[in-house]
Each structure stands twice: as C-alpha cells, then as structure tokens.
C-alpha cells in the first residue's frame, strides 16, 4: 500500500468512526450537531492521559472515549428535554462550547495545540475501526437497536410497549459520544497533535451528511456514506478543478434518487418486488405524538 493509499484509508477510518457517533442517536431520530465536541473531549482526554499521566495508548484512548461518554451522560438529561430542531441547536451549541473551552485551556496548550507523545500507526487505526464496526454490527442485532428505530417511528407507542424511551435516547447519545471520543483519542495519537480548531462546526456537519447520505435505516449506512464522501473526491481527481462540481452534482443526484440514503432496509423490498403482497402503502407515516380519537 502506498503512503497516499494508507493515508486515505486512515482518513476514511476517522470519518467512519465519527459517522457511527452521529448514527446512534440519529437512528432514534435525534440530530446531534455537536459530535466534534465529543471527539475533542476524547482527543484531549486521551492525549492528556498519555502525556501527563504516562498511560499506555491502549488505556488512554478508551479512557478518552469514556470521558466523552461521561460528558454526554451529564448533558443528555437536560439536552434531551428538547426535541427536533431545538435538540439539534442544543447539541450544536454544546459542540461549540466544548471546542471553545479546549481552545482556552492552557494546560493542554490552548490555541497553540497540544503535541501527543505516543504514536498510533495506520495498523492500529485500521484495527480500532474494525473493532468499532464489529461492535456496531453486533449492536444492530439487539433489541436496543430495534428500540432506536421504534422510537424514531412512534415514541408514544414505544413508551406504551413498556420501553423506557428517555433511557434509550440517553443511551444512544452516550454510546455515540463514546464512539466519537474513541475516534478523537485515536486521531490525537495518529497525528501526534491535537488542536481545538480541528473540531469545528464543519466537522460536525460533514459527519451528519455522511450519515444522511448513507442512510440511517441500516447499520451499513454510515459506513457507505463516509466512504462515498471520503473516496469519491479522490476518484474524481482526474476532473481537475471540476472535481468538486462533479462531486456536488453526484451528491444532489444521490439525494434526489435515494432520499432515504444510499443503503435502505431490505425488509420491504423483496416483498414488494415479488408482488406477493397486494395493496398500497398507507398514508399514515407521520410522526404524530398524539393518540387521536375521542
């Protein structure tokens, strides 16, 4: 593998990890626009533990993930009181606040950035990404994943089925933050340097785009979306100056043709394609939260 290829794959790995951090809450219908803040928390916490506490990388990076998760757990309860666009705004603000804190925190270098004294090579990044992907695939086969989708579909009915909707939502946001924190810690140790400016709004928003483009219906969506966003601009290099125009057109094309994302749930396709089940889809697909009637 050339340096260019392995460098590209490493970037892909970081993007995939970030995408899963956004995916978990989004599977339950919660838009997290502050994922960069959780990644920064993991990055700085892991770097600090490596530098100042002399922890081995293998302990510092998971501890970075745990710190991000702890932070998410603390803010989840007040933040999840808001819904929809207000939740998105709250997570957006949180991401900004976290980045601003690290930017002004002299103990981790402030605006000058923070060098990290240990190095995680591409092999470690690949292995960690594979492990996170495997964990996500396992998680997707659990009741927890089922309840995330159920909550997105109809939180009132999910609650009446006995599911603790709030706890599942808090769990999804927290677990997503742990994944983001792991990615951040890994990032800090791969590039041996952390700076708060990296964890900006654009990072959060691009990560959300990976997930939306890949689709939230299945666990493969974030992987495909991140790969699309990371690899396609590279493949279009032959287009020279036009490559971002081409890329933008492809994104618009995908969004127009696959509004639910590149990867959609398979369950409803075979039946409809085989024409085994008569009838038309019902119009009742809204996310109403009232149980109507008299």
């Amino acid at each position: 593998m050339t340096g260019y290829q392995s460098g590209l794959l490493v970037i892909l790995c970081f993007n995939v990890i970030a995408a899963y951090a956004v995916y978990l809450p989004m599977a339950a219908g919660q838009l997290n626009l502050g994922v960069a803040g959780f990644m920064a928390t993991g990055a700085y916490a892991a770097a600090y533990l490596t530098n100042e506490a002399g922890w081995p990388m293998g302990a510092a990076i998971p501890a970075g993930g745990a710190c991000a998760g702890l932070l998410a757990l603390l803010v989840a309860v007040p933040i999840l009181r808001s819904q929809g666009i207000y939740l998105a705004l709250a997570t957006f603000a949180l991401g900004q606040v976290i980045a601003a804190i690290f930017l002004n925190l002299d103990v981790v270098g402030g605006a000058a950035g923070y060098p990290v004294s240990a190095y995680a090579g591409p092999g470690a990044v690949f292995a960690a990404t594979a492990a996170i992907l495997a964990a996500m695939l396992l998680l997707s086969r659990t009741r927890f994943a089922l309840y995330l989708t159920a909550i997105k579909s109809d939180p009132v009915v999910t609650d009446l089925m006995g599911v603790n909707v709030r706890a599942v939502q808090v769990g999804a946001l927290t677990l997503g933050a742990v994944v983001g924190g792991l990615g951040g810690g890994l990032y800090a140790h791969h590039f041996s340097f952390v700076e708060a400016q990296h964890f900006n709004v654009a990072l959060s928003i691009f990560t959300v785009l990976y997930v939306l483009l890949g689709g939230v219906q299945t666990v493969w969506g974030p992987l495909v979306g991140a790969a699309f966003f990371t690899l396609l601009p590279e493949m279009l290099r032959a287009g020279g100056g036009w490559r971002y125009v081409l890329f933008a057109l492809l994104i618009i094309g995908v969004m127009a043709l696959r509004p639910q994302g590149l990867v959609t749930a398979g369950a409803r396709w075979p039946a409809r394609l085989r024409g085994r089940i008569p009838g038309r889809p019902s119009a009742e697909t809204g996310l109403s939260t009232e149980v109507s009637g008299s």
Binding site: A150, K152, S292
Partner: peptide, 17 residues
C-alpha cells in the same frame, strides 16, 4: 384506533417491540 404500527420496522420487528 388509527393503527400505530412503526412504519420503519417490519411486521416481526413490530412484534418484537
């Protein structure tokens, strides 16, 4: 009354919930 199945899930997934 107005059938509140979760449309993002399959039949058996609705029952699992």
């Amino acid at each position: 009354q107005n059938v509140r199945l979760m449309d993002h899930l399959s039949v058996v997934e609705n029952l699992l919930v």
